[in-house]
C-alpha cells in the first residue's frame, strides 16, 4: 500500500493524462505555426533594422598590401586591413591585372582560393566557383558575388580601397 501512496504523489504533481502529454492536437499545432510565424516576422524585422540603421562600416582611405614584384603571376596574397578582421585576398591574374576580394564564400563563409591558370576562384567546401575577374558567382551554391575591393597601383606599391561600381579603374 505504501507503494501506491508513493506512486500517487507524482500524479498529483503532474496531473496530465498520458494521452495529452504524448499527442499534439491540431489546435496546438496551429498555435505553434503562429508562433513560428511571429519568429520569422521578428527575424525579418531584425534584418531590416540592421540593414537600414546599422550598415557595415565602409573602408576608408587606401591601404597598402604589398610590393608589386612580391606577387608573381597567378599568385595570391592573403591580407587583413588594419582595424578589421575580415580576410581578403589579392590576386595577380595571368593577364597582369590585380584583383582583391573578401576571402569568405558568400554561401557559408568558407575560405576561397584562386586556382592559378583558370581565371576562377574556388570554394572547396561545397564546390562553389567565382569569376576571378569580376567576383561573380559562376557555379555551385554561392548566392552572391564575392565582395570586392578596388586595387590601386602606385609605382611598385599595391594598395586597396573600397570598391565603387562606377570606378572603371582597371589595374
Amino acid at each position: 500500500m505504501a507503494r501506491d501512496t508513493k506512486d500517487n504523489h507524482w500524479k498529483e504533481d503532474f496531473p496530465i493524462p498520458e494521452l495529452e502529454s504524448t499527442q499534439v492536437s491540431r489546435r496546438d499545432f496551429a498555435k505553434f505555426l503562429c508562433l513560428v510565424s511571429g519568429g520569422l516576422a521578428t527575424g525579418t524585422g531584425y534584418v531590416a533594422i540592421k540593414a537600414n540603421f546599422f550598415p557595415p562600416e565602409k573602408i576608408v582611405n587606401e591601404h597598402f598590401v604589398c610590393k608589386k614584384d612580391e606577387l608573381p603571376i597567378g599568385g595570391t596574397k592573403a591580407f587583413v586591413i588594419s582595424g578589421s578582421d575580415i580576410p581578403y585576398i589579392l590576386i595577380h591574374l595571368e593577364d597582369g591585372q590585380f584583383r582583391s576580394y573578401e576571402q569568405k564564400c558568400t554561401h557559408l563563409s568558407c575560405a576561397v582560393f584562386y586556382l592559378p591558370g583558370s581565371g576562377r576562384i574556388e570554394c572547396p567546401c561545397h564546390n562553389g566557383w567565382f569569376d576571378a575577374l569580376t567576383g561573380e558567382a559562376l557555379e555551385g551554391p554561392p548566392p552572391r558575388p564575392l565582395p570586392r575591393l578596388d586595387v590601386v597601383i602606385k609605382g611598385m606599391d599595391v594598395y586597396v580601397k573600397a570598391y565603387e561600381p562606377s570606378n572603371k579603374a582597371v589595374v
Binding site: L40, A41, T44, G45, V47, A48, A51, N52
Partner: peptide, 10 residues
C-alpha cells in the same frame, strides 16, 4: 527591400 519585406511578414 528589407523594410517592405518586414511589413509584409508582419
Amino acid at each position: 527591400i528589407a523594410l517592405p519585406a518586414f511589413l509584409a511578414s508582419l
